[in-house]
């Protein structure tokens, strides 16, 4: 039932998505790959990326799920406003997000000055990396979970209440399981977004080896040829793709086992 004419743009679209990755694979120097991947220049950013993205995703869950619940259960007008506020970072170029974070938490920033008086400096630290990643990833989680909550509705929660279950019990045993698929999707999206985060991190956290140089920054640095080679950039990109694929496969099997 698909109009034949659609196959042409569909093929071009798929090619646009797949061919660059194929091109990348062709550029890989497979003989030198093991050495490149096992070098400290590769392992250190990878470790930092995995740790910071995991912490960011955890923060997204801790802050985002309650925020999603509040939005989903608000009156329509308040929910619309909150949803718009949450969506802004999503449509903002990450570079602008980085400048915004600096303006708030950097030297001379509204909160930055106060924190500095207290002896706390956030910009250009690993904490800044986590904050930048959380800033860009949180909307993905909130929107996915909020959508799932609205679809689930409140009918099951009301029934659970008339059976005698308190609000905490209902949230943990009814609400959260009902939005499980949305929660999983939101978590994966947030983690992927945090892992790939570059713009806000570059401006707000900088590019310091071992402290703020995550995978995307290491790739950028390698590509610019400061210290490492283009081969290194290609190898690091391959590593990032591999991590992404592994996550997708893990989540896919998890989902399949939940459904069966």
């Amino acid at each position: 039932m698909i109009p034949r004419l659609l196959y042409l743009p569909a093929s071009i679209g798929l090619a646009l998505l797949v061919l660059p990755l194929a091109g990348l694979l062709l550029k890989v120097d497979w003989a030198a790959l093991p050495a490149l991947l096992l070098s400290p220049e590769a392992l250190q950013p990878l470790g930092l990326s995995l740790v910071t993205a995991s912490v960011s995703t955890l923060l997204c869950l801790l802050l985002g799920v309650p925020l999603a619940v509040v939005i989903a259960r608000s009156k329509p007008r308040a929910a619309g406003l909150l949803r718009a506020l949450v969506t802004v970072p999503l449509v903002l170029p990450p570079l602008v997000g980085g400048i915004a974070l600096l303006s708030l938490l950097g030297r001379g920033g509204v909160l930055g000055n106060t924190l500095e008086l207290a002896g706390l400096r956030i910009p250009f630290t690993t904490a800044a990396v986590v904050i930048a990643q959380t800033f860009v990833a949180l909307p993905f989680l909130v929107i996915a979970v909020e959508g799932a909550l609205r679809t689930a509705g409140i009918r099951y929660e009301r029934v659970a209440a008339t059976l005698g279950a308190g609000r905490g019990t209902v949230f943990a045993r009814i609400t959260l399981p009902l939005v499980g698929p949305g929660l999983l999707a939101g978590t994966v999206l947030s983690f992927a977004r945090a892992l790939g985060e570059f713009g806000a991190t570059a401006l707000f956290a900088g590019n310091q080896v071992g402290v703020t140089r995550t995978m995307p920054l290491a790739i950028y640095t390698a590509f610019n040829g400061s210290g490492v080679t283009t081969d290194q950039a290609v190898a690091l990109s391959l590593l990032l793709i591999a991590v992404a694929v592994i996550i997708l496969v893990l989540v896919g099997t998890r989902r399949a086992s939940v459904l069966s």
């Binding site: 029934v159 209440a161 008339t162 059976l163 005698g164 308190g166 609000r167 209902v170």
Partner: peptide, 11 residues
């Protein structure tokens, strides 16, 4: 609150 009323509902 509904959970403290001991009033059930079957719809």
């Amino acid at each position: 609150a509904p959970e403290n009323r001991a009033i059930g509902l079957l719809g």
